[in-house]
């Protein structure tokens, strides 16, 4: 199950990028290596490479996002693609036929790639399954399921600082239950063979079968980050404070908020990450967020290079397919 074969072509090349589940370590490593190559583009005087020249990328955001959309847009532009930005309110597309109609309309405009964000888990799979075969679909976050480019940019950032994954202890703190970022990180860490992965949260924010995610569960922050090489803080939505999940921001910060003092049990050279935007004083205090161990802004820069890598890989597969058809 969840092999997500739909995202690979018969030769194992990346057609769509929907989830990290089912992708090989070789492919993830290739993606990280390619990201490395694209990092330098940002430092050139002319910040463009022509890999996707003449291609049209549509950013299809059914859920609002500024940062993710912007980094996808920049990534596409650095690859010389033309970019369409569409913000579509979810309420207008509650019905599936409308979502398909939106797709069909864009396909009729000969869009080559959809970058999709949607509030429902499985939305990117749905779109990939129903899109025209020549279109690539990149998941920019679907419900609680997956946010694979975020997962990969986090892996890239970890590799930059720590090198090999096999001896690393990675602690993920916060709302794992609702987090597509956490699911993608956990999937990538499993595939890349991280030494130990931990998740730290009260039981209300831990999925029922956490062992399926390959992580050890902790409920005490100090214990959970002890000897960690990497501490990843997850964003906590304010709406989780209502009802039966959490009593208050105050108590959450008291127990699970990252401070310099609580970080003391981690390895001295531990890095601190956060997918952003940070709720200062909820997930962590500003001293940590802006401190020497924080790599949060590097994550943002790396995000552009990772997205360039993913887009160029999918477009490369499209070109192979087109060439194959021309030969045939």
């Amino acid at each position: 199950m969840t092999t997500s074969a739909v995202q690979l072509d018969a030769e194992g090349n990346l057609r769509h990028f929907l989830t990290l589940d089912g992708l090989s370590r070789t492919l993830l490593t290739e993606m990280l290596d390619r990201t490395e190559g694209f990092l330098s583009v940002a430092r050139q005087a002319v910040k463009k490479v022509p890999l996707c020249r003449g291609k049209i990328v549509a950013n299809l955001f059914f859920e609002t996002s500024t940062r993710t959309r912007t980094t996808f847009e920049l990534a596409a532009k650095r690859l010389s693609a033309d970019v369409l930005n569409l913000n579509i309110s979810t309420s207008a597309t509650a019905k599936g036929e409308t979502l398909l109609d939106t797709l069909r309309n864009l396909e009729a405009m000969h869009v080559d790639m959809f970058v999709v964000r949607h509030a429902d888990s499985g939305a990117a799979h749905f779109i990939a399954a129903h899109a025209d075969p020549h279109v690539a679909v990149i998941n920019a976050g679907d419900g609680r399921h997956s946010h694979p480019t975020q997962g990969m940019l986090d892996m890239f950032t970890i590799r930059q600082h720590k090198g090999d994954f096999t001896h690393l202890c990675v602690a993920i703190v916060g709302d794992v239950l609702h987090s597509r970022v956490a699911r993608s990180e956990l999937s990538a860490l499993r595939t890349l063979g991280a030494g130990e992965v931990r998740i730290i949260a009260p039981r209300t924010l831990i999925p029922v079968h956490a062992e399926a995610l390959g992580a050890r569960v902790f409920h005490d922050l100090r214990e959970g980050v002890r000897d960690a090489d990497v501490v990843i803080m997850l964003r906590l939505q304010r709406e989780r404070m209502r009802g039966a999940l959490l009593p208050s921001e105050h108590e959450y910060f008291q127990l699970f908020g990252l401070t310099e003092e609580r970080l003391a049990t981690a390895k001295p050279d531990a890095i601190v990450m956060h997918p952003g935007p940070i709720n200062r004083g909820v997930e962590m205090d500003s001293q940590v967020a802006d401190g020497p161990r924080s790599v949060i802004l590097e994550q943002v820069s790396n995000g552009i290079a990772v997205r360039m890598a993913v887009m160029s890989m999918c477009i490369g597969t499209q070109n192979l397919r087109a060439a194959g058809q021309a030969d045939g």
């Binding site: 499985g122 419900g143 029922v208 956490a210 399926a212």
Partner: peptide, 12 residues
């Protein structure tokens, strides 16, 4: 609500 919902991020 179980192993598969945990992996797929579907509300269980």
């Amino acid at each position: 609500e179980g192993r598969v919902s945990t992996l797929l991020g579907l509300p269980g």
